[in-house]
Amino acid sequence: MGIQFKDETFRDSFTFKNSPQTIKRFPFPFPEDKYMYSVNIEPHVPGAKGSVYEHLFDVDEHYVSEMRDRALVLKEDPLRCQALPHMMTAQWDLLELIMECKSKSYPEHFTLEKQGDKWHWINRPLGIDDTFTFGDVSTLPYEPMEYITRQTQGDFAIMDQRDNNLWMDAGMVTTQADWSLDFDIGMNFMEWHGPVPLAHQMGVFERALKFLLNLQHGHPVRRLNWTMTINPRLDTSPENYHKWGKDRTEVTPDNVGDKVHLRVELQSLWRLPRSNAIVFPIRCYLIKMSELVTEPKWGRRFHRVLKDLPPELADYKGLTRYRDTVVEWLSKYDDGKPTSIGFGLD
């Protein structure tokens, strides 16, 4: 039993798609018919069975193929994974957190056995079976953060806490919505969020920072963020923007359903115990417009959200060039009927 992993691509042939069960569990991010940047943080506790919240580190049918895509990105550009030297304790904290969570959540796929600091890790989907000494880097093929995040969906940023601020001093970033780890590493929370429009004036980041500085171990939190991506491309990095940017000009009324994707980030934040650092996993979920509109509420609501999005946000998210085409396409799926407030389906 367990998850049936798909063999698919996120580049060139772009064979990615969601199975009907995976469409059902898509974390649709809009609780109402309009969107405004907000912090919308809630406790990251296990949620409904079958949902992306059932397990704290969700593994889905795209796992094996996403990990293959990550390996390709790293081969082309090793700078997508970096850690400043003082982050080694935090790297081990992260390895422990993920191994513990995954082996508890998915015992059929992952096993962790510990005898003191001698650890045995089995990852069946990826065919990994390693024994290593916790705390001794020389016993792993990579540094601990790289080792475990080559086996975990989503990007990861680790923030060190000092001088009443959070400093992004380590990360694995290969599926990002247009930000560069190599450029941003070492920045503090405010600097890193510098380019986000509107939110600064609202004091969003000051409040969020104050909240995060007191984040407690054992009480992770989460929020959703979103953007759109043309083609199911995971690696929409600024590094390769000159290679994928032209995708945005290729949207036509005929290909919206297959080519245009809503991209949702399930972001969680965890205090790490030994290092007092905070890890920020950013898990990306993609859904095609043709898949999205199979749920009538999502079709109606996303049409309304996209139509009324403030232009500066559309620009920041890179939607301006194709937004009208997509809104027009979505209008066929919006009969004007009211939608219910919240995430529940109509």
């Binding site: 304790t89 060190d160 000092r162 171990h217 009480h219 007092n276 650092a277």
Partner: peptide, 11 residues
């Protein structure tokens, strides 16, 4: 739960 308001400066 343990809370740290007096951490060692990692760097």
């Amino acid at each position: 739960n343990p809370v740290n308001l007096f951490p060692v400066s990692a760097g």
